[in-house]
């Protein structure tokens, strides 16, 4: 077999796969953040907690009601999205006329409360969630072994990301969303119910986080801190891609996951910080982000 710079291909491909998996979660989560920030001007710090709630939702559905993975993949995002809608209606909607900082503080506080509640009832050790039977096992691709479930996570993430992109950039509903992101007052003056659109958009963004959480449940253990650990990296991804850019969030998410994986192969010591180093460089050279359009 061929070798690259002394690295056996199995190792390289293995780390690339892990990078792609991480990138899938970065992409789906930063996409949700970008959609929410675009229309609501809220930096949704509760996103990690909502991702965790998605994973717990799947675990609870299985353990309390016997509902399995596939229905949970739909149900858990709907339930968590509905909780998000309730939060938006009762709390977040009061902050739209204030500085970003207030939204960030509120959602950060909510994240701490939600994570605290889950820690209180479920502890921090993590709960197991089995890979659904249909996706157990794996494929031998010759140069590497691909576990079926990991392949599924990548495919599902790509489909959801590009589905969301298509909906926003190419449909009539998306044109309302883009217009309201630019000038909500004028869109309202055309007779469109902008507050309802904002509420549903927040619910959708939260639902995306929960969907990522369900996808993550069989890979990472389901625990109250799973989102808090991930969300800091996701915020770095969003900063690199540019706040509010849909395609930017998707491409940056997958791209940085891969870069992180490659760093783990070639310079393992740097893998934990590579994304933050890139963030610092991007902030110095192009503060609005790689895909951001206004300085």
């Amino acid at each position: 077999m061929f070798e690259l710079l002394g690295i056996p291909p199995q190792v390289l491909m293995g780390q690339l796969l892990i990078g792609l998996i991480n990138g899938s979660f970065y992409a789906v989560l930063s996409l949700g953040l970008a959609v929410i920030f675009g229309l609501l001007n809220i930096i949704n710090f509760a996103h990690g907690a909502q991702y965790m709630m998605g994973a717990f939702g799947a675990w609870m559905l299985l353990n309390y009601t016997g509902i399995g993975y596939w229905p949970a993949l739909i149900l858990s995002p709907i339930v968590v999205g509905a909780i998000g809608i309730a939060l938006e209606r009762t709390m977040i909607s009061r902050l739209y006329k204030l500085d970003h900082l207030y939204g960030l503080l509120l959602t950060f506080g909510l994240a701490l409360i939600i994570q605290g509640l889950f820690r209180n009832y479920y502890g921090v050790s993590g709960l197991p969630y089995a890979i659904p039977p249909a996706l157990q096992g794996g494929q031998n691709l010759g140069f590497m072994f691909l576990p079926n479930y990991r392949g599924w996570v990548i495919i599902a993430s790509v489909v959801v990301c590009f589905g969301t992109w298509f909906m926003i950039e190419k449909t009539r509903l998306g044109s309302y969303l883009r217009a309201a992101t630019e000038n909500p007052e004028l869109v309202g003056a055309f007779g469109i119910n902008v507050p309802r659109m904002i509420t549903l958009t927040y619910g959708f963004g939260v639902g995306l986080a929960a969907f990522a959480g369900v996808l993550a449940a069989p890979i990472y253990s389901v625990n109250p801190n799973m989102g808090a650990d991930l969300i800091i990296v996701v915020f770095a991804v969003v900063v690199i891609g540019g706040m509010g850019s849909i395609m930017g969030a998707i491409l940056t998410g997958f791209g940085l996951g891969i870069i992180e994986g490659l760093t783990r192969v070639f310079y393992p010591e740097g893998s934990a910080v590579v994304i933050f180093v890139i963030m610092a460089i991007v902030l110095m050279i192009k503060p609005e982000g790689l895909f951001g359009n206004n300085a």
């Binding site: 009539r172 044109s175 309302y176 883009r178 217009a179 992101t181 630019e182 869109v187 055309f190 007779g191 469109i192």
Partner: peptide, 12 residues
């Protein structure tokens, strides 16, 4: 962020 036609058809 909207094309001319999307701008035209935006108001319901």
């Amino acid at each position: 962020s909207l094309s001319v036609e999307e701008n035209l058809t935006l108001p319901p």
